[in-house]
């Protein structure tokens, strides 16, 4: 501890589209106390070594959310990441701009796509006509009502989750973890009148593209747990509307499938998710697989104690309350 200095090799992504034909990494080596935040190291590079380095930052206290970047391949806040453990684990610190967003210069990215996907979800209160907004005073909630938000009010919209998300990376229709966590916040807001509409709309607008890889939850600097709130949204969406999309049909189909034998009937699940035409389109691939794995064509044996499984369904699924 104390003021002992360690040598910190930092490889920083550099790219200025107006001058450079391709990005490159620039090595800076600093002598720093091991608890120094990566952000402070970058600012030291800028003041002492290279004023051309571009990055975004403001509060330096994990509140403003501007210094999100990729540090040794993890999306996180530079102000919240000390250099010591990184150097000990990786031997150096590699710094890249956030993923899934166009680079403007060095570590500065264009945030417009992040906000664009967010805005599509109407992230603002749509007042409930049955709970009129008072015009002359605030519209408070009870502490119990605030509890419903769970983790979501902590979000600082830094974009770490968006950068970490493979669904964002591979599908332009996925709204992103932060946008869905915020949507959850409005869905459970007792003052919001659009709960049902929001849940119906989101099913068709990308909710089921979440891969539940939980990389968003892992990368979030404020423990918002976006993947858990997305899971909650899925369950609430099914409760209001049932299986309307492939994703929800698959989830509901899977649940009903297990009930019958206690174990998954793989072949039947295809029919539960797809309509007959879609199922037919899967036939060539299904036959390819069945040639090597013929048991996919047969239903599995019921588990012993399937009656117990059935009883759990009767108790917890047949008369399910809306969560």
């Amino acid at each position: 501890m104390s003021g002992e200095l360690i040598s910190v090799p930092i490889d920083v992504y550099r790219f200025d589209p107006s001058h450079d034909s391709a990005p490159r990494y620039q090595r800076y080596t600093l002598e720093l106390p091991r608890h120094t935040p990566v952000l402070s190291a970058l600012l030291k590079i800028r003041t002492d070594l290279d004023p051309s380095l571009s990055l975004r930052y403001s509060c330096r206290s994990s509140i403003c959310g501007s210094c999100a970047m990729v540090i040794n391949s993890k999306s996180r806040l530079a102000c919240q990441t000390p250099v010591g453990p990184e150097v000990e684990r990786h031997g150096r610190i590699v710094i890249d701009p956030m993923r899934n967003l166009p680079v403007l210069r060095d570590l500065v990215v264009e945030m417009a796509p992040f906000w664009g996907r967010y805005r599509k979800l109407e992230p603002h209160l749509i007042p409930d006509p049955n709970r009129p907004m008072p015009v002359d005073r605030e519209n408070p909630m009870t502490p119990a009502e605030v509890e419903r938000f769970k983790t979501t009010p902590r979000c600082i919209a830094c974009g770490s989750c968006y950068s970490a998300c493979p669904a964002v990376e591979h599908d332009p229709e996925f709204p992103g973890p932060m946008a869905l966590a915020k949507l959850y916040r409005f869905v459970v807001d007792p003052r919001d009148g659009a709960r049902q509409d929001r849940l119906v709309r989101i099913q068709a607008e990308g909710l089921w593209l979440c891969l539940r890889c939980h990389l968003c939850t892992e990368s979030c600097p404020k423990e918002v747990e976006p993947s858990e709130r997305i899971r909650d949204l899925k369950e609430m969406a099914i409760a209001v509307q049932g299986g309307t999309e492939h994703g929800s049909r698959h989830a509901v189909g899977f649940k009903d499938n297990i009930r019958e034998r206690g174990i998954l009937n793989e072949l039947k699940l295809v029919r539960q998710t797809y309509n007959p035409l879609e199922a037919l389109a899967q036939l060539p691939q299904g036959l390819k697989i069945a040639r090597k794995k013929p048991e996919t064509l047969h239903a599995p044996r019921k588990i012993e104690g399937q009656a117990e499984v059935e009883a759990l369904y009767v108790a917890l699924d047949d008369s399910k309350e809306t969560p």
Binding site: R231, E235, S248, F254, L316
Partner: peptide
Amino acid sequence: FVDEANSTL
């Protein structure tokens, strides 16, 4: 998948 359809179950 069952967790998405009915987490308690």
